[in-house]
Amino acid sequence: MALRTIMTKRTFAGVLGFRQQLRGVQTFSLPDLPYDYGALEPAINGEIMQLHHQKHHQTYITNYNKALEQLHDAINKGDSSTVAKLQSAIKFNGGGHINHSVFWKNLTPIREGGGEPPKGSLGSAIDTNFGSIEAAIQKMNAEGAALQGSGWVWLGVDKELKRLVIETTSNQDPLVIKGPNLVPLLGIDVWEHAYYLQYKNVKPDYLKNIWKVMNWKYAAEVYEKECP
């Protein structure tokens, strides 16, 4: 896991955030949002978006970078116990960075196509796998509402089996934890920090409204790339 993290960082470094060289370790920085903080209102208010991006995502990146540097040192010293100890911090903070980077792209203002259902191959794949887009949304909302504690609900594609899946992950586990061939198309953050300041304890309303700003175009592009 540790080595794989090091080996694969190049592949997602290009996609997620800007690369920096620090003490020989490639670290990450906060990617810009592709829209203004207030652009998703009224579905998600600007205060949440700003806090979520500037504070939460930034904290995951800061702690991920710290853990990567400690990992680098521990590997150089042959300190296996520290390498093993760092795994939970890497999974949590690295996962937080990966998940939020996908999440920002999963959302888009209504005037830029937010909430418009997918056309093309993703649309028909959803019909095949779940019956209809409404049924898929209902299933994701039900699983998101039932998730205890902090986590994510995902629409993903198994790139080997070419099959769509709906999965939940705990805390900041990225979807790939649930299967090495799973690629996230859409993820909904059901941590309280994603909705609490606006929706308080009424998580189902957040889940209902987030679909109004869902960027299906992004999901369709990823799907077509994985299942040409």
């Binding site: 205060e47 902090s150 941590w191 309280e192 609490y196 300041l197 308080k200």
Partner: peptide
């Protein structure tokens, strides 16, 4: 340490 405990504290501090 659920977030619902401290998020509104953050709100009132901003």
């Amino acid at each position: 340490v659920w977030e619902h405990y401290h998020l509104l504290l953050v709100e009132s501090a901003t």
